[in-house]
């Protein structure tokens, strides 16, 4: 259960920013593995790419795209808040990032499906 004092959009945005960041770091080795296979031989890469057709992989990719959008939106938000003269856009930017992540994820699913 979340502590009551933490239950507000600003804290959730921090959690989403952090979780997406860690998830992306964990994904990176997989990404490098794919690149490494491409260097090794065509067949190895083909095998890997065939595995990416699997629905579980598509779901994973959807998560990746969504997390990337979340991380990008959350990071841009912090930079906008800290570098520009203060305007009361804190929660607006959080809402924008959330909507953007859902939208980008949906577009990905439509195109993949």
């Amino acid at each position: 259960m979340i502590r009551p004092a933490r239950n507000h959009p600003g804290f959730w945005a921090f959690v989403a920013h952090r979780v997406s960041g860690v998830a992306l770091v964990l994904f990176l080795p997989l990404h490098f593995l794919a690149l490494g296979l491409a260097l090794e031989s065509d067949a190895a890469l083909e095998g890997f790419l065939a595995a990416t057709e699997h629905p579980a992989f598509v779901i994973g990719e959807w998560g990746l795209v969504t997390f990337l959008t979340i991380h990008l939106a959350a990071g841009t938000r912090v930079m906008l808040l800290e570098l520009l003269p203060w305007r009361d856009t804190r929660k607006g930017l959080i809402a924008f990032g959330a909507v953007l992540a859902v939208a980008v994820g949906a577009v990905f699913l439509v195109r993949a499906g």
């Binding site: 507000h8 804290f11 804190r90």
Partner: peptide, 26 residues
Amino acid sequence: CHTHGSCVEHCPVGINPTAGIAGLKR
């Protein structure tokens, strides 16, 4: 500061420390 905004959410007199801290960073 991580810009959580828990301070703004709870300040009883409506001060926004997050805004001031962002100002200090800038």
